[in-house]
């Protein structure tokens, strides 16, 4: 994909994301027509009067907007992490959730709440550590065996193990924050922490930026590590940068919104179908596509069965799991 075509595509995707955000703001228990939302957003930006009732303004900008921002940040982080893991492991089936990396992050977050809740940075830091530890295990396994399905199988086992530990910890924990096991096993933005909003915003922007500096090298790693090394890539350095970054992205996403699955699988896949496998396109485009996916899933989760709310991760898994099966069966 050429630079001009990519720039145009990003512009279009950014516009779609903006419109989707406005639409998500208007939909919900307190429904506000899209024109009024548009007027209110314009007023917010220019500093004018929004024209909304005080109650509406609190619901839309005080409650709905942070949740939407969280969905966008979490989606972008998970999808970019997925694209990076796929290129590095040379495995199109890789996804932070399927590989157990999200499980590692969730376990880290739970431990931080149980052991060090007074320290603000403990949660993202321990999530990152958990994600990094899990991805290291996955990499060791993936390196030994070149079959993509085997790596996924190993990821499933790691996930199941971590889920069990999480189940044990949440049932013995006193802390109210840990009662919601769905959050940690499936991901749920309704009970996600908006404290994590700043962390996920910074992490997503820095993480995607860091991955972009390695995108050209990742194109070569996708062909093969040995080929990449012979073609001039310092493979050891690229591997560490990408693993650390993808773990950081996964860790901060899970710390904020729990272990939402399949975004990292589906978003990069669709992006490759649309514009090819060049990582200079795939990584940023996946971030935007992932943001859109989680935003759509979360909007569906809070409106489909209103007034009941579904876990966000249940929606992404119901959509993502069949796509995963399709990809698994289709490969030659």
């Amino acid at each position: 994909m050429s630079a001009r075509k990519a720039a145009f595509s990003f512009l279009v995707m950014g516009a779609v994301l903006f419109v989707a955000t406005a639409a998500a703001l208007s939909i919900g228990s307190e429904s506000v027509p899209l024109q009024e939302i548009a007027r209110a957003i314009a007023a917010k930006i220019t500093g004018g009067v929004t024209g909304l009732a005080r109650e509406q303004e609190v619901i839309i900008f005080g409650l709905r907007l942070p949740r939407i921002a969280l969905a966008v940040g979490v989606g972008a982080a998970l999808a970019a992490a997925g694209a990076a893991f796929q290129a590095l492991l040379r495995n199109p089936l890789a996804d932070p959730y399927i590989l157990g990396v999200s499980g590692g992050a969730a376990l880290g977050a739970i431990l931080s709440i149980m052991l060090a809740s007074q320290w603000l940075w403990a949660r993202p830091a321990m999530s990152f550590a958990g994600a990094a530890a899990a991805s290291l295990v996955v990499y060791r396994i993936g390196r030994r065996d070149d079959d993509p399905a085997h790596l996924v199988l190993a990821g499933v086992v790691i996930s199941t193990f971590l889920s069990s530990v999480i189940a044990v910890l949440t049932s013995i924990a006193e802390d109210v924050k840990l009662r919601n096991i769905t959050l940690w096993l499936l991901g749920d933005l309704s009970s996600g922490s908006s404290e994590g909003l700043g962390v996920i915003a910074v992490a997503a922007i820095c993480g995607v930026g860091a991955l972009l500096t390695q995108a050209r090298a990742l194109n070569l790693m996708m062909i093969g590590e040995r080929d990449a090394f012979a073609l001039g890539v310092e493979t050891a350095r690229v591997r560490w940068i990408v693993f650390a970054t993808a773990s950081m992205l996964t860790g901060s996403a899970v710390a904020a919104g729990g272990a939402i699955g399949y975004v990292g699988l589906v978003a990069p896949h669709l992006v490759r179908l649309a514009g090819g496998a060049d990582n200079r396109w795939v990584i940023p485009a996946s971030a935007i596509a992932g943001a859109l996916m989680v935003l759509a899933a979360d909007t569906a989760a809070r409106t489909a069965l209103a007034p009941r709310e579904l876990p966000t991760g249940a929606v992404t898994a119901i959509v993502g799991a069949p796509i995963f099966i399709y990809l698994l069966l289709r490969r030659r």
Binding site: R90, P92, M222, I223, G224, L273, D278
Partner: peptide, 12 residues
Amino acid sequence: SGEVRFPLTALE
């Protein structure tokens, strides 16, 4: 060289 599992063109 091994197989490539991503949709890379020959030019890429």
